[in-house]
Design a protein around this nucleic acid. Sequence first.
DNA 1: GTTCGTGCAAACGGTTTGCAACAAT
DNA 2: ATTGTTGCAAACCGTTTGCACGAAC
Lengths: 131, 131
Amino acid sequence: MKHDVVQLLTGRAIQPSAHRVAVAQYVLSTEDHPSAERVWESVKARFPMISRATVYNTLNLFVEKGLLRELHLSPDSVVFDPNTDPHHHLIDEETGSIHDISWDRVKVAAIANVDGYEIHDYQVVMRGTKK
Amino acid sequence: MKHDVVQLLTGRAIQPSAHRVAVAQYVLSTEDHPSAERVWESVKARFPMISRATVYNTLNLFVEKGLLRELHLSPDSVVFDPNTDPHHHLIDEETGSIHDISWDRVKVAAIANVDGYEIHDYQVVMRGTKK
DNA sequence: GTTCGTGCAAACGGTTTGCAACAAT
DNA sequence: ATTGTTGCAAACCGTTTGCACGAAC
């Protein structure tokens, strides 16, 4: 597992420092969509000396290198999504938690040729509550 | 026009103070999706004495009363949408500008019964560039 | 004279940045 | 020696808040 992460980093031209590996291990294996602050807390459990700045820099680097995606769904903070394949999102209106919805669970038609724009990317953002 | 705005405010139990009317006139008539800062700048042109805090408070009040919607599509700032009917959004990846896409321009199917959640609301968020 | 809107400035919170120290090669 | 990573603290910026003033009814 640690091995896989190192490969993932080097495969994207990211030097696999200890801190980066620790961040990657956490953020790539969680089902959550953690904020930077949350990543920091989790990684600190095993690397108490890691600084907030390093976590922020590392996450930004990962986004830049395509290992993670940033989501801007809430005003509170940016969250990170280890799932870089196309998919949709469901936001629990009570808890604020974000759930992935697989691409084929939702059918979207007639996206092309909107307003003379070329669409590079789209997703459905849903809000709801557990029933 | 000013008359309409006053009616809109009173109809939502908002006291139509001069500042609130000025904010409403601007934000309800623009095609843009302005940030609070942008609203402030625009309103200041005619009401130079209006304070930032008042603009923020006013916009939040309008959202609370259902006159506006907040959009959290960019990490930079919250923007406000005078169009409270269901519709989709297209974000210009170059300029960051946000465009409304009418509800029936996009067909979304099979939204119901996702993960035991009840969906209250959804929209398609697209990103692209002018071609 | 109580209620409500407003301005100001300070506080806040998430994020970025400058800089000095350090590690790796 | 050079290059790249890290920690710290300060800066930053959008937004909220406390408080005192002032207007309206």
